[in-house]
Design a protein around this nucleic acid. Structure first.
Length: 394
DNA sequence: TCTGGGGTCCTAGGACCC
DNA sequence: TCTGGGGTCCTAGGACCC
């Protein structure tokens, strides 16, 4: 019988708004939201400050709607480098208590505190972490404590801001079952509607064995049994710190101030977006094997097209060329409101070195070899391939 | 209500190989 | 002429989350 784990889910409260107030303290007295779009009065609320929430403003809401609810609301533009900075401070702070940390997103962390809990009571530890983050970094957090990642996550959501909530297996019936089904992490608007349509409104109704067959008609068995296990504290996920070491994808997209039409205009935006995307790829010492482009038409139809190549690449010109190839063979003259580019199948450059080593170790006999040079060479070789491929294709 | 930008994961079909 | 089963990879789309 394995030991019961103690997992913390630490969630930064209204994170973007907290960062904005650290940078501009006058905002503490204001009703404000973070979000919107530069160059236009549109866009959506990314994060509503608590004062804005008191006026009924919520994230995801359009700016127009927020202004209707409270005309004097301030709209603060997003500042991702700032969030990244405080996110790093946050994760480094947590690492003082446990090295077993999983990044849930930029503003949430899972921690396995089973070991340290033998020395300090988990509630005391949670309070210490919460107080420390607030005093040292002005960052308010809510902490959920549970035996699994899922239950800890559900717990942290129950009291905000500055909550500490325990959700043990034996509390599930009392604390989770009465909730509306849409509160379950992983059940969004679509699934909620599908379930509501067959008469499932609460968690209690979802877990009722009498409803099993009904639910399996609208949900895959994988999903259904996965949710059941999660709800009942039977999920086996672990806090695996290596899981998010390497991102799965890097992308950049832009909703245009005015919709555009025509290949050349789209290409120009694609090129600009590719610059920052490739910059981030290089900053993280990664190479990519798949290039994707994304277009959204004026009537909100999203088109994604991708192409994978055999050798991972990082070269800007080459990535842009592939993106352009994809654009040329897929764009049919629609009016476009969003252009995006993405890189995936990412590999750390140093792992790539090992991979090549297996096959081309002669290249590395000279200890002075230069990886950048080698990758340039591979890119060059691929370039030839693209050209011949292009001719073959049409 | 007129709908951002960054991600992750899942599904499903088809190609291809053994 | 009819045609298995398993596995992996690629592609497209969609749901979801913050």
């Amino acid at each position: 019988m394995s030991q019961i784990k103690i997992i913390f889910h630490v969630d930064l409260n209204a994170f973007y708004a907290s960062c904005a107030m650290i940078k501009e303290p006058f905002l503490k007295k204001e009703v404000f939201v973070v979000g919107g779009r530069t160059g236009s009065n549109s866009g959506v609320v990314s994060t509503a400050s608590y004062k804005a929430r008191a006026k009924g403003i919520r994230s995801g809401m359009s700016i127009v709607e927020a202004q209707r609810l409270y005309p004097k609301v301030l709209v603060v533009p997003t500042n991702f480098p700032l969030y990244q900075k405080y996110s790093n401070l946050f994760f480094n702070y947590l690492k003082k208590y446990s090295k077993i940390i999983l990044k849930g997103s930029i503003d949430e962390a899972y921690m396995d505190v089973t070991e340290i809990s033998k020395e300090i009571h988990p509630l005391k530890l949670a309070k210490q972490i919460q107080d420390g983050l607030l005093k040292e970094h002005e960052l308010p957090v809510s902490i959920g404590i549970g035996p699994t990642l899922f239950l800890a996550k559900m717990a942290s959501d129950m009291k905000k801001p500055l909550g500490i909530t325990v959700l043990r297996k034996r509390d599930v019936e009392k604390m989770l079952y009465p909730l509306p089904i849409g509160k379950i992490f992983g059940i969004g608007v679509k699934t909620k509607k599908v379930l509501n349509d067959i008469g499932i409104f609460t968690v209690n109704e979802f877990v009722d064995p009498n409803n099993k067959n009904k639910i399996l008609e609208v949900m895959t068995p994988n999903s259904y049994y996965g949710f059941l296990d999660n709800i009942n504290g039977k999920s086996t996920d672990i806090v695996d710190p290596t899981l998010y070491d390497i991102p799965k994808s890097i992308s950049n997209e832009e909703t245009l101030v005015y919709p555009i039409q025509g290949y050349e205009l789209i290409y120009d935006h694609l090129k600009e977006l590719a610059k920052t995307t490739v910059e981030r790829l290089k900053n993280e010492d990664l190479v990519a094997r798949t290039v994707s482009i994304k277009l959204k038409t004026s009537n909100f139809q999203t088109i994604t097209r991708s192409r994978s190549i055999s050798e991972p690449i990082e070269d800007f010109d080459l990535i842009l060329q592939i993106a352009n190839d994809i654009l040329l063979s897929n764009y049919e003259g629609e009016e476009i409101r969003l252009v995006g580019i993405g890189l995936s199948q990412l590999i750390l450059k140093k792992d790539l070195k090992n991979e090549i080593n297996l096959f081309n170790y002669n290249e590395f006999e000279d200890k002075e070899y230069n990886l950048d040079k080698l990758i340039k060479k591979i890119n060059k070789e691929y370039e030839k391939e693209v050209i011949s491929f292009g001719i073959k294709e049409d």
